[in-house]
Design a protein around this nucleic acid. Structure first.
Lengths: 239, 239
DNA sequence: CGTTGTTTTGACACTAGTCAATGGGTGTGG
DNA sequence: CCACACCCATTGACTAGTGTCAAAACAACG
């Protein structure tokens, strides 16, 4: 039941409403398309770029998924976020031209490459494009705040429930099922993202299974009762 | 030993290098200045705006300090960040025109008000201004990532030490002492920001005092040994 | 000088981390 | 096709670090 795969042309790409072309006129999209370079697909664990590297291009996820992370002093990797199709990677580098974290592929994945100098030229010419880029930057700030809110104050149960609901929502927005999906990352990566240990992730998932709220089989997640899952994170809602 | 107070004119304001005018020509700054409205100063606890309110203007902190927060379902306030002079408030609202959190003053404070429609007009005319706005947005994303990194994985001791060093650095950049400063917020607010209880903040501060690394007297902080403080957060450094 | 709010300190409970062992899948080579 | 190894996930036992609750000390203010 997957939607049509994304296309190499923005005009027919099913992700275009989530991505940079949103709000642009057809001729403007055509101009944007000219600067997009197609990279070969990346395999599991393959690096898109590493921290402190100079940013030549931004990337838009076309298919698959990516992980944003930094290395801690002790050599462990700290996951800071995930990128799903339609999302822009590398916005943090607009500040001084260097990436502030590393990104690698969680599965076989592909990206559209947007060379920065040409993107900047285009933004100067197409106000709608500049406007959309600003909107996407602003949205990322909001997403970050939500993540900070989650990390600050909540129990393992709420964190895990929120994580599942976040994926459900994002997959749903992409046209996939929001009750059946596969995690593209191991428990360890989820744990690192939520500030928990992988054992705790495991225990929380089995607890949710025993309550019949979800069904877990390895990486496969099935949400049986979306309402109950949302009820768990209720005390965490903010106004 | 405070520097000259910020001025109502950007051209003479000592914060202009941190703020929106950075990188602009003198005549461009003069054009920017025309749209800036001065608001009356806000007192302790006074609200600048609240979550979900429509964003009419962005704000630049001129003096004092502000707190970004949301209300949890149980009525407690969750602090998500602080704004010091020279920093821009409200960037999250560029996405859909509504603020995604509330901001109030931690002490008597003043802001420059930047009406959004006029700022957008100006950005279209002055590429350097648009560029600087993008840079500031991007920098905020990086700051958020650092905060997420801190919240995810670290002990109370590392969190508190990082918090003190963050303030030290930010005050230093403003031309104030980076070893002697006053906290403008109560323990409870620091606790909420770091995802800890106020008792834990208290205990960590007294522990640092007993090690002679800092000296605390209510809100007054004195850093005796910056090196030792940095050594505490060493394992938390990332590459 | 009393009232109020903030900070500190202590005692205790509990969540989640750590360490260790077990189980299950997947892939490779014989 | 099976045996083995490897990785990942699960489960259990124990522990450490924080949260919670309560009381006392302290500062600020009227």
């Amino acid at each position: 039941m997957t939607p049509n795969p994304p296309n190499t042309s923005c005009l027919t790409c099913r992700l275009s409403d989530l991505c940079l072309p949103f709000g642009l006129q057809i001729d403007e999209v055509e101009t944007l398309e000219i600067i997009i370079k197609n990279k070969r697909p990346l395999g599991l664990g393959e690096s898109l770029f590493t921290k402190n590297e100079a940013c030549i291009s931004l990337f838009a996820v076309k298919s698959g998924s990516f992980r944003r992370f930094v290395m801690s002093a002790d050599g462990t990797e700290q996951t800071l976020g995930f990128y799903l199709p339609g999302e822009l990677i590398g916005l943090d580098a607009l500040f001084d031209g260097n990436f502030t974290f590393s990104v690698d592929a969680l599965e076989t994945s592909s990206v559209c490459e947007l060379p920065l100098t040409r993107l900047n030229e285009l933004c100067a010419k197409i106000p709608n494009l500049q406007y959309q880029l600003t909107r996407i930057l602003s949205k990322e700030i909001t997403t970050n705040h939500e993540q900070m809110f989650l990390l600050s104050n909540n129990s393992a149960k709420i964190k895990v429930a929120t994580f599942l609901l976040m994926l459900s929502k994002r997959y749903g927005a992409l046209g996939y099922s929001h009750t059946h999906f596969n995690l593209s990352m191991p428990r360890q990566t989820i744990a690192s993202f939520l500030g928990l240990s992988n054992e705790t992730i495991s225990r929380q998932l089995t607890a949710l299974c025993k309550e019949d709220i979800i069904l877990v089989n390895q990486r496969a997640i099935q949400i049986n009762d979306l309402r109950l899952l949302q009820a768990i994170i209720e005390p965490c809602h903010n106004n």
